[in-house]
Simulated scan of single mutants.
Amino acid sequence: MAAPVRDAMLARRSAPKVTDAAPDDDQLLELLEAAGRVADHGALRPWRVVALRGDARARLGTALAGAAGFSGEQGARLSGKPLRAPLLLAIVAVTRPHHKVAVWEQEAVAAGVAHQLSLVLDEAGWGVMWRTGPHTRHPLVAEMHGLAEGERLLGWLYVGGVPAGARSDRTPGVDAASRFSSLG
């Protein structure tokens, strides 16, 4: 593995708190060009990314609160969560029947794009946090994103600027040996 790629992977950290700065669409397209190079059996490109900024984040919050059946203080707390970052990147799996590529594999490609996008965003100096939740696939949330038949929301990358001094080494390393086996 090339040292710069490995170094970027080892340096990646989730950023639960970000500033109001965010990449613009041109920057995102450049990063997506790299992230979209994930292994993709059949070259189906079974994914898309929806950028949520401004009022779209509030509409997502309303959809999440509705999906949870929350109102009042609980609803306000849940509906405020998408406002934690200036940019949310909704990762959408765009699946279709295929004689060689199962739906689960198409969703895995979309998840791979999300992960690679989080890596290149982090490497570019942006704070990134992957978020999901119990209502990710609720019809109200799907409708808010304008999802079509065969499209499933996987989650969001919350993206923003990195506050001064926010990078840390608090993420524990991986004990690779405990997660690895070899068959001869």
Rank of each mutant, 00 (worst) to 15 (best):
A2S: 12
A2M: 12
A3D: 13
V5A: 14
V5D: 08
R6W: 05
D7M: 02
A8D: 10
M9V: 15
L10G: 06
L10C: 08
R12E: 07
R12Q: 09
R13G: 01
K17H: 11
A21M: 00
L28T: 00
L29I: 01
L29N: 00
L29F: 00
E30G: 02
E33Q: 12
A35L: 01
G36D: 01
R37C: 01
V38L: 00
V38F: 01
A39M: 05
D40Q: 07
D40M: 06
D40H: 04
H41E: 08
A43F: 11
W47D: 00
W47L: 00
W47E: 01
R48M: 04
V49H: 00
G54K: 05
D55I: 07
D55R: 13
A56Q: 11
R57Q: 10
R59L: 13
L60G: 05
L60T: 10
T62G: 10
G66F: 07
G66H: 10
A67C: 09
G72S: 07
G75Q: 09
A76F: 06
S79F: 09
K81H: 10
P82A: 12
L87I: 04
I91C: 08
I91K: 02
V92C: 02
V92I: 15
V92F: 03
H98S: 04
H99I: 08
H99V: 12
H99A: 15
K100N: 08
V101E: 03
E107Q: 13
E107I: 06
V109D: 02
Q116V: 14
L117V: 01
L117P: 01
L119V: 06
V120T: 00
V120M: 00
L121M: 05
A124C: 09
G125I: 11
M129V: 14
H135W: 15
T136M: 10
P139W: 11
M144Y: 05
M144P: 04
M144G: 06
G146R: 04
E151T: 04
E151S: 02
G155L: 02
G155Y: 02
W156C: 06
G161F: 09
G161M: 11
A166E: 06
R167V: 12
S168D: 13
S168Q: 08
R170H: 13
P172D: 06
G173Q: 09
G173I: 08
V174Q: 09
R179G: 06
F180S: 15
L183K: 11
